[in-house]
Design a protein around this nucleic acid. Structure first.
Lengths: 219, 219
DNA sequence: GATTGTGTCAACATTGTGTCGAGTACGTCG
DNA sequence: CGACGTACTCGACACAATGTTGACACAATC
């Protein structure tokens, strides 16, 4: 998903003035935002804070972004672009080495979240109030769910996993669990699973849920 | 937990004027809020909306509540009071009939949520921005976690459940999952588990996680 | 040198929150 | 009865944050 809709349409990039200007300012806003998000929730950050941090006035901010949320969305877009190429994806190892496959799925999620906690936790926080971000998350979730439920069905088909609730429903529940558990682990809201254990705990739940044991049948 | 802190201290209740006044207004605000929450998120509701809905002016609103959030907190308090007496609690049936015990735990959570979805989903939404509500949820969560992890340990002790990750960590993860899954089921955000299946799906995950099977050993 | 597009901001308009202080209605006590 | 206190009410204000407008600057191109 490209996020053209969020950043104001910048005119043709052909001619670039030599002033200390242009994209620099946009980047300055973005990095100010990411920095501030490490300390404060998005709701506590004003547009003025972002503008000042980037060395511009508040009205000028609106030249670059249409709102605070759209800054977050752009940040998110950048994070995910990096990520989508890093996590090329637990490939076809599913039937060969299921445990490894699922561990890698989880680690991918963990890594995503961990590398840019500030941005990702902010996203979680505003998903309820911002329609665009809400849609963005729904979209991502849908793709994960599809992928995971196909994997579960494949495992059931080859007899490695027993039958059970609809694969899609399990995938949804497990996926929501991951998000929520990682969120509270990273924000440190009590009660939370300690960061050192979080992958193991989640993996355990995934495996037992899918296979009714922690030692699934390998290829 | 009583929420004295949230409602302004009403003076002695001794003398009651006969005007269409007093507690009536407070109740009017509360029911207006609950009604509006069925259609809109709390962030979309202004204090003026609440005041108008209750037939008073905005400043008068502040006579009864210190803020929008404190209305929600009071609403929550009422919901929970009803609930804490309804769900007296899956008692000592744990070792006799484990499946039933866990099903009742889940159903209690489901019922809580379901009966006052508007209030509960609003709570989820503002937990990230309101410290008081955040604390309230953390508190409730902590008590559930304690209770659940003790139950898991008891099952392990009597050999009904196999060893595994720290009981507390499982309890935290399962608990967060419940909240999150029920939230999206009730708001209907896609992807969500359909309401008709949600208890079965969650129960399945709980049982397999705790017992590594859906048929635990009964007493 | 005129034109065009990028970039800038002071000043304004708007919306929502919270407060203050002057008021009104009602029960009570002299 | 009347004056006193308390519950209650709201107009008018102060404030904070958001978003908009219109005039202006500068560089690149014609």
């Amino acid at each position: 998903m490209t996020l053209d809709s969020t950043a104001k349409p910048r005119a043709s990039r052909g001619r670039r003035p030599s002033r200390p200007t242009g994209d620099d300012r946009e980047l300055a806003i973005l990095s100010t935002a990411e920095k501030l998000l490490e300390q404060h929730a998005l709701s506590e950050i004003s547009i003025d804070d972002l503008a000042r941090g980037a060395g511009i006035s508040r009205p000028t901010f609106y030249f670059y972004f249409r709102s605070k949320d759209s800054v977050l969305l752009t940040l998110l877009d950048r994070v995910i672009q990096k990520l989508d190429q890093a996590v090329v994806g637990p490939s076809e190892r599913l039937s060969e080495d299921p445990v490894r496959y699922w561990r890698e799925c989880l680690e991918a999620t963990y890594t995503t979240f961990s590398a840019h906690r500030a941005v990702l936790t902010a996203t979680v926080q505003v998903q309820h109030t911002n329609a665009e971000i809400h849609r963005w998350r729904a979209d991502r979730a849908e793709r994960w769910v599809t992928r995971i439920s196909q994997a579960i069905e494949a495992e059931r088909a080859r007899g490695a996993a027993p039958p059970g609730p609809r694969a899609r429903d399990l995938a949804i529940a497990l996926n929501l669990m991951n998000d929520r558990v990682l969120y509270s682990t990273f924000t440190g809201d009590e009660p939370a699973v300690p960061e050192s254990d979080v992958i193991d705990v989640l993996l355990n739940i995934w495996l037992t849920t899918i296979y009714q044991t922690t030692q699934p049948i390998a290829g």
